[in-house]
């Protein structure tokens, strides 16, 4: 553990209201939900680069730890719902198979028992496993502050590498998934890691087609942010063949060489995943 904890402060609000009031004071507070990212930075001695004051949201679980379907048929995932909460929830298993799959391949069970989907989104890693699935399901985020709230599209949340539209005084309170629209066999999720468990993705993809002209394709680990390849979606919806779709996709993704893989590999695998996806779900 390479951090001198005495240099850092941590607030432990007991309610949502208290948490948002603390955030309204203008101090930069780094939220800790499940802790599975923050604690890694702490171990590595990188906390200093992130912030000096932290805010543990754990005691907000009574208000924010839930997974439920609302009266309009939307799935609501509270900000403190863990991967385990999500993957084992009956409504999720029934209606959002890619979410189950993506939560199940995130970290290991111990991580799934602590980590939260909202935390994963806020952290903004382009390798996040659940984010492409959430994007394909047209997820929205409810962002709250002490005086109000707003709702943004997940696909418009990220503005750059680990940058997003969340303001200092805001927290993500919930993830909202509209009523399921894709048939189970028209959904395709694929995580590419170097081993079968506990791998950070080298490419991650979620895609779906509702057969009525709505195609969704979202990619992780091939750009600074998780993104929907909207041009490729449109082309595929208009009946583009695999080669043409691939030509368009190459204008949307920008993979790089890093410690886990190469640009070349990521491109080749993206091309093959695209072809596989089109072969399996394209009509």
């Amino acid at each position: 553990m390479r951090t001198n904890l005495a240099d850092y402060e941590c607030l432990t609000p007991g309610s949502v209201r208290e948490a948002l009031e603390q955030r309204a004071t203008g101090r930069k507070l780094i939220p800790i939900a499940g802790g599975t990212d923050v604690m890694v930075w702490m171990n590595d001695g990188h906390l200093g680069k992130v912030g000096k004051v932290y805010q543990s949201l754990h005691a907000l679980a009574g208000e924010w730890r839930y997974v439920k379907t609302d009266t309009e048929g939307n799935l609501r995932i509270g900000a403190l719902a863990t991967y385990s909460d999500v993957r084992h929830h009956e409504d999720v298993k029934k209606n959002y198979p890619m979410l189950v799959h993506s939560a199940q391949v995130t970290g290991a069970i111990q991580i799934q028992n602590r980590g939260t989907l909202a935390g994963n989104i806020a952290n903004g890693s382009p390798a996040a496993d659940t984010v492409p699935a959430l994007m394909v399901y047209d997820a929205k985020l409810r962002l709250v502050n002490a005086s109000g709230e707003r709702v943004v599209e997940l696909s418009e949340f990220f503005t750059g590498y680990r940058a997003n539209v969340l303001k200092e005084e805001e927290l993500i309170s919930e993830i909202i998934l509209p009523k399921p629209r894709f048939a189970a066999d028209q959904q395709y999720y694929r995580k590419v890691g170097t081993r079968e468990a506990q791998a950070i993705s080298k490419v991650v993809f979620a895609g779906a087609n509702d057969g009525k002209g709505n195609v969704r394709m979202a990619w992780g680990s091939v750009a600074p942010i998780t993104l929907r390849s909207k041009k490729t979606e449109d082309a595929v919806a208009a009946g583009a063949a695999a080669d043409d779709a691939w030509a368009i996709l190459q204008t949307e993704i920008t993979p790089i060489d890093d410690i886990r893989s190469t640009r070349d590999y990521r491109l080749k695998v993206s091309q093959r995943i695209l072809a596989d996806f089109l072969g399996k779900v394209h009509q």
Partner: peptide, 11 residues
Amino acid sequence: MTNYIIPTSVD
């Protein structure tokens, strides 16, 4: 250990 990949129980 995150980036040097030894087999897990499922590998």
